[in-house]
């Protein structure tokens, strides 16, 4: 099986006034064509930086990227600015967290949608309009013809996110990054948008990466889940394995903190005490050691390596749950 995207040992550092900030620390992840992968982690775990680095959106003198990102065998940092524009939109596209700010307030939806169709695919104005209506129909926006004439503030959050999705899939990308696609939406709309993304993925045969802080969001819509913590992948497994054969104490804590309807009334919802690790430190211990209920001295003295448990399941822990 050839991988669509092959990321090897990706690390991203930023120069800040507090010193070097290690946002992503050696992440490896392979994504096959048409596959759906979830990346779960709390704020500051590096998941957004990871996705933007993979897109090649992080460029600048204060960003240091090491490791390999191969998309269909091509290292994306070797692309010049013209080539990377070709890559964006047609190979890989992104949906952003907040649909409120992701649309230009002074331009009509139609103008924003047809822009990339005209500039990228060389369509005429009327072709672009027809295609825009087709795309809005595909994302199930009611009355697409009317929506084209509207401004962003005249649409609801869910409708805006549908417009964003339509714009992202306009040039038939092979892979779609969804960075917290439902965080800014109402709970009722969240499920609709996730459902829509799952349908589009099947219909268009895209690979999809859903980035979220909510394990519950991705559970039903992904083939595999990577749990990120402190800039590292701490557990990577198929969605079923992650929930049924949890190895990493952090993943276990995340699962316990999902609200459930079958929880006993009056019982307290589990939370994870403490703070995420300092992103500027050179870590010599397990990043989760200070918050882990099972931590022993070894966890504080040594940094655990990723352990392969077979069947595509790997974890980063000296004393995995259910282990010997």
């Amino acid at each position: 099986m050839s991988d669509l995207l092959k990321i090897t040992d990706l690390a991203v550092d930023f120069d800040t006034s507090y010193g070097k900030l290690h946002a992503v620390r050696g992440v490896s992840l392979d994504i096959a064509p048409g596959e759906s992968v979830g990346i779960v982690g709390e704020s500051g775990s590096g998941k957004t930086v990871f996705s933007r680095a993979t897109m090649g959106l992080l460029r600048g003198s204060s960003v240091h990227r090491t490791g390999q990102i191969l998309f269909e065998g091509t290292e994306i940092s070797s692309l010049d600015s013209k080539q990377i524009r070709e890559y964006w939109g047609t190979k890989i596209a992104m949906i952003f967290q907040d649909p409120m700010t992701a649309l230009n307030p002074v331009r009509r939806i139609g103008a924003q949608m047809s822009e990339s169709l005209i500039k990228r695919l060389g369509m005429s104005k009327s072709e672009a309009k027809d295609r825009a209506i087709e795309l809005l129909t595909l994302v199930k926006l009611p009355e697409p013809e009317l929506a084209l004439e509207k401004y962003a503030h005249q649409l609801s959050g869910g409708m805006r996110q549908r417009v964003m999705i339509a714009m992202a899939i306009a040039c038939n990308p092979k892979m779609l990054f969804a960075d917290e696609p439902t965080t800014a939406l109402d709970v009722t709309v969240q499920a609709q948008v996730l459902e829509l993304l799952a349908e589009l993925r099947k219909e268009l045969g895209m690979a999809m990466v859903i980035i979220t802080h909510d394990l519950g969001v991705v559970a039903g819509y992904t083939d595999r889940i990577a749990v990120m913590y402190g800039g590292e992948i701490v557990e990577l497994a198929s969605t079923t394995d992650l929930f049924t054969d949890t190895k990493m104490p952090y993943t276990e804590a995340l699962i316990k903190s999902i609200p459930r309807v079958d929880r006993k009334r009056g019982s307290e919802l589990a939370s994870i005490e403490g703070m995420p690790p300092d992103p500027t430190s050179n870590r010599a211990s397990c990043g989760f050691a200070d918050r882990c209920p099972y931590a022993v001295q070894k966890c504080r003295d040594e940094h655990p390596q990723l352990v392969d448990a077979g069947n595509g399941h790997s974890y980063r822990c000296f004393f995995p749950i259910g282990g010997k």
């Binding site: 964006w88 596209a93 822009e115 990339s116």
Partner: peptide, 11 residues
């Protein structure tokens, strides 16, 4: 964000 969106669409 919309500038980043436009960028990520390859404009």
């Amino acid at each position: 964000d919309f500038v980043l969106v436009a960028k990520s669409l390859g404009l």
